[in-house]
Amino acid sequence: HNGKLCKLKGIAPLQLGKCNITGWLLGNPECDSLLPARSWSYIVETPNSENGACYPGDLIDYEELREQLSSVSSLERFEIFPKESSWPNHTFNGVTVSCSHRGKSSFYRNLLWLTKKGDSYPKLTNSYVNNKGKEVLVLWGVHHPSSSDEQQSLYSNGNAYVSVASSNYNRRFTPEIAARPKVRDQHGRMNYYWTLLEPGDTIIFEATGNLIAPWYAFALSRGFESGIITSNASMHECNTKCQTPQGAINSNLPFQNIHPVTIGECPKYVRSTKLRMVTGLRNIPSIQYRGLFGAIAGFIEGGWTGMIDGWYGYHHQNEQGSGYAADQKSTQNAINGITNKVNSVIEKMNTQFTAVGKEFNNLEKRMENLNKKVDDGFLDIWTYNAELLVLLENERTLDFHDLNVKNLYEKVKSQLKNNAKEIGNGCFEFYHKCDNECMESVRNGTYDYPKYSEESKLNREKIDGVKLESMGVYQILAIYSTVASSLVLLVSLGAISFWMCSNGSLQCRICI
């Protein structure tokens, strides 16, 4: 991952900044910058967002509201009850120091605090018919004063009620008058409520006091790749198909172990950190130390980045220098085999997901714990399936590479015959000098055995068991695999060879 928040398929997220979902939807004055928000790819909250409900109280069923919003990608904020005409018999300019803005008392931008007009609070009834052709999110509140005197001074009615009804919602609220500790300079409380109004449905408000009335509502448009994440990451000019709280993932790998919460087309989250597919040879310690064997393909974004291909070729060293050249036929066979294998694994496992966190309130801790156990169970199954699949494929890959290298080895052996000696570690020792032209003939299969047989015969008789390297004779190393990324691999195959001279070296080696 890149540690950044990015656009998702070209669409920017909605960053709530210092506000949370509650503050944004109710219209906390400190969240005025969010009022123009219309569309987004996903919503970003920060872990310690401080601006929620400015007048103390709870947004009821907040967790369910977050779940609903996680599939919303755009909205239209509109005046559901026009301020100047909807409440002619009531005062609608209630403000509070708890919702101060720029040093002055204020109130929510989407709600109206209705109080008595003169000395009376006549029963009010108002309704709205949803003609938007889509779901409408309606929010309101109920004020709970701290004393009967406060109730009387604001609403005149000691036994007030609030009723809200639609086809799918029907509740009646009565204020709970009680002494409470002071929070944000208030002994009173406000509880906030919401409902989704279906197209064509009607919502009716009736009250004799204590109503925090809707002013603006939201017509919602769903987008199934949307979601809500909690993150401290910063926004950058970048684009992605998959976003996590820790950063964007741009990967076609089937798995990731970065974060379980994802938005967009994302690899499946697994616990494993070692889900690797081999593309090189079986481990040979001396070669492995030099980083030549054991190439791997990573299938977990965050564990290993991208696929690494092994390729086969020849390396030689003689009086004229040293050089490398790919054996294109065996390399292409290996590439085709690995590509098919990788595609097979991805096809089997690479279903892209959006995974969002589930919200539970403080009273639902047991449910949250149960949900976590269920999620953990599914996660263990996914991890096991992934590891088992790759384990089985790896064994076949190792066998496949062994065969490829063996074929190259036999190709060289059949040409050199007794003009060189096998020394048991995949290397041959020449009994004759071999210049670049000679080396090329070994690589392309045109090695002239009779041409060098007499010199080889004489050297075999002279050496008589002495280690060949100390006599200045020449080696050919018969097994060799270097490691390159897919891009470098293609470039390498396009070149005939490249040279690395070893000044004054008397050794001649050709490596497979």
Rank of each mutant, 00 (worst) to 15 (best):
E410K: 03
I249D: 03
Q352L: 00
A484K: 02
L275M: 10
I258M: 09
T351R: 13
T331K: 03
E319C: 01
N436M: 05
N371G: 07
L388C: 06
V261W: 07
V405I: 15
S231T: 15
K372S: 11
A334G: 01
T305P: 15
W499P: 00
D327K: 10
I346P: 08
S231G: 08
E393S: 07
I308H: 13
S502Q: 15
P267T: 01
E455H: 02
H259G: 09
I496Y: 07
S453C: 03
N340H: 13
I463G: 08
Y289H: 13
L281R: 03
N407C: 03
I479P: 06
D327N: 08
K358R: 02
L506Q: 15
L292V: 15
T397M: 10
A484H: 06
G465P: 14
A478I: 12
L477F: 14
E429H: 03
N336G: 02
E301A: 06
E461Q: 10
I300V: 15
K365E: 04
H259M: 01
S330R: 00
L506S: 00
S502D: 13
Y480I: 04
E395V: 10
P254M: 10
P285S: 01
L253D: 00
D375P: 06
N404P: 01
Y312V: 14
S505F: 07
A355G: 08
L253H: 12
W311Y: 14
T331C: 08
Y324R: 01
I300S: 05
Y452R: 05
G357S: 15
V356F: 06
I296V: 15
M471N: 13
E364W: 08
N232T: 14
V466W: 05
N418D: 13
G280K: 05
H259A: 15
F430D: 07
Q332V: 04
Y324K: 09
N425C: 07
T331D: 05
N283Q: 09
A495K: 00
A325K: 02
N369G: 13
Y452L: 01
I284F: 08
E395I: 02
A326N: 02
S251V: 02
A478S: 14
Y409G: 06
A420L: 05
A297P: 02
N232D: 11
N404E: 04
F353P: 00
H401L: 04
I476Q: 01
R460M: 02
N419H: 05
I463N: 11
N425D: 11
N239D: 15
Y447A: 05
Q317K: 11
M439C: 01
F360A: 06
E461M: 07
I308M: 10
Y384N: 10
D327R: 04
V342N: 01
C511D: 08
T397F: 06
T240A: 15
D464W: 00
T351Q: 13
G280A: 06
I287D: 00
D448Q: 07
N343D: 08
K417C: 04
E387D: 11
S231M: 06
S272H: 01
F498I: 15
V483Y: 00
T397S: 03
G445S: 09
Q320S: 11
G303Q: 03
L398Q: 06
N444A: 12
T482W: 10
Y312N: 05
I300D: 08
N318E: 07
N336W: 11
T351S: 12
T244I: 01
R290F: 00
S441A: 14
G303H: 03
E319P: 01
W382Y: 09
N362S: 13
S231C: 00
L398A: 00
E364R: 13
N418K: 08
A297L: 06
Q332S: 11
C508N: 05
V412W: 06
A334I: 02
N257R: 06
V488I: 15
A334W: 07
S453L: 15
Q256P: 05
G504Q: 15
V483H: 12
C511E: 07
F430A: 00
G357I: 08
S330D: 00
I335T: 03
C427M: 06
V278R: 00
N340W: 03
T339R: 14
G264P: 04
K268G: 05
V491A: 12
I496H: 15
N418W: 05
G294C: 09
S492G: 00
G291F: 12
I338N: 05
Q288L: 02
G247F: 02
N250W: 07
E429Y: 02
N361G: 15
R271G: 05
F353M: 15
S251K: 09
V390H: 03
K329N: 03
G247I: 06
C511R: 02
L363N: 08
H315G: 03
S453M: 03
Y431P: 04
S231F: 07
N239I: 11
Y452I: 12
Y384F: 11
A484D: 00
Q352F: 13
M367A: 08
D399Q: 07
Q243S: 07
S505N: 12
V412L: 13
I284L: 15
S456V: 11
E359R: 10
A478Y: 03
V405R: 03
V466I: 15
H315T: 01
T305V: 11
E364Q: 10
P245I: 03
W382M: 09
S470K: 12
T351K: 13
A233R: 15
R290K: 15
K457V: 14
N407T: 15
K348E: 04
S251L: 08
C242L: 05
S492M: 02
L391S: 02
M500L: 07
N343V: 10
D448K: 13
H316K: 02
L391M: 10
G313F: 07
N418F: 09
T383W: 11
I346V: 15
L253F: 05
P267V: 12
L506G: 01
E237F: 11
Q328Y: 12
T482S: 13
F400K: 05
C438S: 03
S251F: 06
N419M: 10
K373H: 11
Y269I: 09
N350A: 14
M235I: 12
F400R: 04
F400A: 03
G465Q: 15
G465N: 12
F299I: 09
V278N: 04
E422Y: 03
T273G: 14
N503D: 04
E455D: 14
Q317E: 14
N385P: 03
G310C: 00
L379F: 13
G247S: 07
V278P: 03
E387V: 04
E469R: 11
K457Y: 09
S497L: 14
E454V: 10
K457P: 01
E429F: 05
C266Q: 09
T383P: 03
K329I: 05
G337A: 12
P285C: 02
E393K: 08
S481Q: 14
L292H: 00
E410Y: 14
T240V: 13
D448F: 08
D327S: 02
Y314Q: 00
L292N: 01
G302S: 06
E429A: 05
S456N: 00
I423M: 14
L468Y: 03
Y324Q: 05
F430G: 09
M439V: 10
I476Y: 11
G377D: 10
F293Q: 02
R396E: 10
Y289K: 11
S481N: 08
L363K: 13
C434F: 05
Y314T: 05
I381L: 15
L379I: 14
D464M: 10
G337T: 10
Q507K: 11
V270M: 02
E347N: 12
K329R: 15
T482C: 04
P285I: 04
L490A: 15
Y431R: 15
K417F: 13
N459M: 10
F400Y: 12
S441P: 03
V488D: 09
N239M: 10
W311S: 03
N444P: 00
D448I: 03
L490T: 06
A484R: 00
N350E: 05
Q243M: 10
S505H: 06
H432G: 05
P285L: 05
E364D: 13
M349K: 04
K451E: 02
V488W: 09
G264E: 10
T279D: 04
I308G: 02
L458I: 07
D327F: 05
Y480D: 10
E440D: 13
H259W: 05
L403M: 15
K348A: 13
S441N: 15
Q507L: 00
F353E: 03
